[in-house]
Nucleic acid binder design. Structure first.
Length: 596
DNA sequence: TCAATGCCTG
DNA sequence: CAGGCATTGA
């Protein structure tokens, strides 16, 4: 905590001009990486199939090994599947050679594998283990899921346990379906790649045209011109692809592993007190829970600096081994891989092209999914939307705030750390560079927007929605965004007034008898608390006017409480009325989308 | 009716 | 900080 007087360390933030040194801080996407290879270099052995195969191979290895941890796993029950999978994997392996081109990929997969093993162990142990499993965080989560599942099952009519032959047949079928899905995905991803190449080529020629025009005008090439923008776009698309592939494969293999586990003879018996392996059927998790999961991700990524509250145990970042569940019926989720509903290429492609590869699994918090889907932007510029929505983290604050399409929960839940890292902060990128020149705006509020809003609070406590629209030009406003911003300021005020009341009461307790003895300076504890809340980084020079307003507010509270006005339930309203007139203009600097 | 607000809660 | 809910005012 930096408690040093603000004056020493504060400086007015720059107006967002990206200079060379700042570019150095730009996130991994800006840095050289394996993605720096041009898309074109993948030619016929497309990047997608390459990634797909590679991922599949790793998943299979991981899955096979994981299953070894199953106590007394029934070899006869598993063999047919594992054999066929092996065959499948071998077929795929024969198509390519694995180069250790990317350490981060293998590291990531190792980590993922470890998680899978962990979960499977936890699940295998859960029916009778009461103490050991708890030591593992994942196991605890797993048990929670199991309990929840158990509860749910109690409410539902009990299914008949499949006979062994039934199980075998259905296993074969499922395996077959899985294979079909994988192949289908592969075909689809090829098509997607073609689409992307097409878009890329188009954009490339456009950028060349702009480049030419610029030369004619003797403008300096480079800078934040179109080539840079196109590079960004390319990176974005590649990141998206990688992620989509991995997520898709994750889904399928999760299904597979769950299937195998469920059908192993060690699947727990279902009874009142015993836990049950989750069957990973869709629609188990409520919107709320998914949103919470997303928040968890958000909070985790922010680290203690930004979220110090203990997270609810329910709040968790879903991992490979955790069921990804959808809050609405299958027919509304074209981009999903439930083996009960094999997908048609056209369905998936349509979804991908319409909504982007993030392919959400939840509805807008505020808007019905149907409304969201009919959004003109997503229909007209599907790939631009992809780019716009591709912000994966917010590197300015060193965070990984992952988002999907606007206000939606995406399969991001099955996050891939290395991809996250490498995609970096597209939002920041966009704000700082040429993304804006492509008219790309963001349909979600980011941590940077929050930070900016907090700083704006130093000037305005009651901003109108018009003011907000003016000062967040990079935000694509809709009803949801607007109310979120309004809500932020409402929360800011809440905190502000709570502090005021607290300090006013404290002054009275401390025996301060005159309002004149109540003041707010930069040295005041009250100021410290407020500054900590709205200007945590302490890198902003709080305007003097704010101190004045704070002092007036404190006086109002002090007087009201002194006069026992607080016995009236709505005593604060009078104060609010006074304070809302004290808003001052927000400096024009804040209008820059790259303010932070 | 709806945007905006405030209060409460997690 | 976000969600839910009640209230208010245009």
């Amino acid at each position: 905590m930096n408690l040093s007087p603000p004056e020493h360390s504060m400086h007015k933030p720059s107006d967002g001009c990206v200079d060379g040194s700042k570019a150095e801080h730009l996130l991994p996407c800006y840095r050289r990486s394996r993605y720096d290879e041009p898309l074109a270099s993948y030619h016929s052995g497309s990047i997608i199939s390459h990634l797909l195969r590679k991922t599949i191979h790793n998943k299979l290895t991981s899955l096979d090994n994981s299953l070894l941890y199953l106590p007394s796993s029934n070899a006869s029950g598993l063999d047919p599947e594992s054999n066929s999978i092996d065959d499948f994997a071998r077929d795929d392996q024969s198509c390519l050679s694995f180069k250790d081109e990317d350490l981060s990929v293998s590291e990531h997969l190792q980590a993922k594998r470890a998680r899978v093993e962990n979960i499977i162990r936890g699940m295998a142990a859960s029916p009778n283990a009461d103490g050991e499993a708890e030591s593992e965080c994942e196991a605890v989560r797993c048990r929670r899921d199991l309990l929840k599942e158990n509860k749910r099952k109690q409410r539902l009519p009990q299914h008949q346990e499949p006979t062994q032959s039934n199980a075998k047949t259905s296993k074969d079928e499922e395996c077959h379906k899985l294979k079909e899905q994988l192949q289908s995905m592969q075909r689809l991803l090829h098509q997607l790649q073609e689409k992307i190449s097409h878009v890329h080529d188009q954009n490339y020629s456009e950028s060349e045209e702009r480049e030419d025009a610029r030369s004619e005008l003797s403008m300096e090439p480079g800078g934040f011109g179109s080539d840079r923008a196109m590079k960004n776009l390319k990176e974005t698309l590649k990141c998206e692809l990688t992620r989509t592939v991995s997520e898709s494969v994750d889904m399928v293999f999760k299904k597979l592993s769950m299937t195998l586990l469920n059908q192993s003879p060690h699947s727990p018996e279902y009874s009142e007190n015993e836990k049950r392996i989750p069957d990973d059927s869709p629609s188990e998790l409520s919107d709320d829970e998914i949103v919470k999961a997303r928040s968890a991700e958000h909070f985790e990524s922010h680290g203690p600096e930004h979220q110090t509250e203990a997270l609810s145990l329910v709040v968790r970042k879903p991992s490979l081994s955790q069921a990804v569940k959808r809050p609405f019926p299958l027919h509304q989720t074209p981009f999903q891989f439930g083996y009960n509903a094999p997908l048609h290429d056209s369905q998936i492609l349509e979804h991908l092209l319409k909504y982007g590869p993030h392919s959400t699994f939840s509805a807008m918090p505020c808007l019905p999914a149907s409304l969201e889907r009919s959004s003109p932007d997503s229909m007209e510029h599907p790939w631009e939307s992809v780019a716009m929505r591709s912000k994966l983290s917010s590197g300015h604050l060193g965070q990984h705030h992952r988002v999907g399409p606007p206000g939606l929960v995406s399969v991001d839940a099955l996050c891939l750390p290395h991809v996250k890292m490498e995609c970096g902060d597209l939002q920041s990128m966009a704000e700082r560079s040429s993304f804006m020149s492509l008219n790309i705006s963001f349909e979600r509020l980011t941590p940077n927007h929050l930070k900016k809003a907090k700083l704006m609070f130093f000037y305005t406590r009651y901003p109108s929605s018009n003011l907000l629209k003016n000062f967040f030009p990079d935000v694509k406003f809709n009803r949801c965004i607007t109310s979120q911003l309004i809500k932020w300021f409402s929360n800011f005020r809440e905190f502000y007034y709570i502090q005021m009341e607290k300090f006013a009461r404290q002054a009275i307790i401390d025996g301060v008898n005159d309002v004149k003895d109540v003041s707010v300076t930069r040295e005041s504890e009250l100021f410290r608390v407020l500054n900590m809340h709205y200007n945590k980084a302490n890198d902003f020079q709080v305007p003097d006017r704010f101190l004045e307003v704070a002092e007036i507010t404190l006086h109002e509270f002090y007087s009201a409480i002194s006069l026992s006005k607080d016995s009236d339930p709505s005593w604060k309203k009078a104060i609010y009325k006074v304070i809302c007139k004290l808003d001052s203009d927000v400096p024009e600097d804040f209008k820059s989308p790259s303010y932070l």
